[in-house]
Write a protein that binds this DNA or RNA. Structure first.
Lengths: 218, 218
DNA sequence: TGTACATCAGTGAACGCGCGTTCACTGATGTAC
DNA sequence: TGTACATCAGTGAACGCGCGTTCACTGATGTAC
């Protein structure tokens, strides 16, 4: 595990970095977070985000990290938090930029899949670490369902506009979420499978799952 | 990572185990695999399956493992393989035991969700290690889409019987798979979320995704 | 303008840890005669 | 039935590794006077 066949490409040490001026020591915190995120994005495994690897990447010594993060766990938590903020922002922006209830719902779902496709390793991390999730009401829980809530809202809008016949938008938004998440993560696992493209999948998911009116249920 | 806040419950050393008789040394291989699987199921993390931990669990010394597995990676691969066999068997059995095309499709999907709910950590492992997947045609690839193929077959049966109006069973089976996988894994991540129960979700997924005829597509 | 000094940003060496793996071995079990 | 011996199933000690973390430090930067 620490030794042996671990053949992760060594990104090599990033060379000399200028020491921050006085009062600007805080900048290093941002550099550490950025370096750690980049490391994760490259290797695809959270375990490879070690204090020493991060330090090499940023161009500092490992103990310097302790001035900015209490321990390794805090760095990982910070990466995940920042990834969730990026993720939620991307989806909120897409929704805000689209027209009409249906357009907004679809734009949100499309942005979801785009984030996962563009930053696969960061997406994977979002829903990987169960131990970082707090109880409902805590911030660490809220940040994880923020985009889901936006999805529910969009679907509700559609119902209100008479476009969707969903009798339970929360349940149906959950089903849509599940399909989006499954599609995104299975693709990472089996890249050689002949996946339908995102467009086709969105048609199925958005139209099929409690979306268009389609008569009886069972 | 090796030290620090790792607070995984120590299952404690399993005590003295009888040495196998001559010619029965092979039995240990099965014990090792079982111990490793149990360890994984308990801790939920593949990293905790170390040679030493497995040895403690089984009640042998760590080097004894080398008589049966060439290295640690081989153990993990064996766990995953055996988990996939269990998984595929569970689904195949459920399908075989159900009546009618629709009954078989639904039984397969229900068995999928049941496996994930009953053995969450083992299910998670199935679609976690990307590096173990070979190219299409290889056994390590085939075992990963075996149940998907059964799903396509069931859906095709439904089309043939005039029950489903799907114009592309492979694509629609993919969407169903994605929804099942997403539902299963998101539940592990956010156990406190108010998930619709499996029954309700199956209705949505099986009926909604390219299942029941529902007019235009876009 | 010059200088003593406090502070800040960061370093280098060292620690103990669990790990995968190697190696020389031990002692019970079965077999040949 | 007895005994020498090969074989088999496993052991215990040791290795070098990268890790998280601690600790005493250094030297550049800014400030008080």
């Amino acid at each position: 595990m620490t030794q042996g066949g671990s053949t992760v490409a060594d990104p090599g040490p990033t060379l000399a970095r200028e020491r921050n001026r006085r009062g600007e020591g805080g900048k290093l915190a941002a550099d550490i977070l950025a370096g750690a995120t980049e490391l994760l994005e490259q290797t695809g495994s959270e375990e490879s985000v070690t204090l020493r690897a991060v330090a090499r990447k940023v161009g500092i010594s490992a103990p310097s990290i302790y001035a900015h993060f209490p321990d390794r766990a805090a760095i990982v938590e910070a990466i995940v938090d920042s990834a969730f903020r990026d993720f939620n922002d991307a989806i909120a922006t897409a929704i805000a930029g689209a027209g009409g209830p249906l357009g907004r719902l679809r734009a949100g779902c499309a942005a979801y899949l785009r984030f996962a496709a563009d930053r696969p390793n960061r997406y994977q991390l979002l829903f990987e670490r169960r131990d970082l999730v707090g109880e409902p009401g805590e911030a660490s829980y809220a940040i994880r369902i923020e985009s889901f809530n936006a999805l529910v809202e969009s679907l509700q809008e559609c119902v209100d506009a008479g476009i969707s016949g969903s009798d339970d938008p929360v349940r149906d938004a959950t089903a849509i979420w599940a399909a989006l998440h499954g599609y995104a993560t299975l693709q990472l696992m089996l890249p050689d499978f002949s996946w339908p493209n995102a467009e086709a999948m969105l048609d199925r998911i958005v139209n099929g799952l409690g979306w268009i009116d389609h008569g009886a249920d069972a």
